[in-house]
Amino acid sequence: MAQVPIIRVGEVLIASVQEDLRDQDALDLQVRLGDALEHTTARGVLIDVSVVETVDSFLGRLLNETATGARLLGAQTVVVGIRPAVAITLVELGLELQGVRTALDTDKGLALLRRLIAREDGHGQSRLR
């Protein structure tokens, strides 16, 4: 299967998942995202999972780990486009992705990332939680 493309837009890396992720592809994405964060000045990661229809406990855990790892590398992570059915499954599995920020779509996700990055820089603190 083709690799998940990682696109850099300004300070943000966008990983746009194109089909249901197999375990190996997800692990591969995790490594390449880490690599990209290490070698660029990116401050945010946006993972678009809007086409993903099945998420198991492995993938759920991996998303959490990826976000936590990215934070250690100095970047904020937002997962966007989780489908309603997938959200219900994740909650039923007890995977609430506490460590991950989420948004409805890429547009809102990018806005959230921008706010998070601005807050890290110490701007607009009062407006945000």
């Binding site: 309603p84 959200a87 219900i88 039923e92 609430e96 989420t102 409805l104």
Partner: peptide, 12 residues
């Protein structure tokens, strides 16, 4: 809490 968690996953 389930409702809260599921909605959060959709960014709400």
């Amino acid at each position: 809490l389930e409702t809260v968690a599921a909605s959060r996953l959709l960014g709400a």
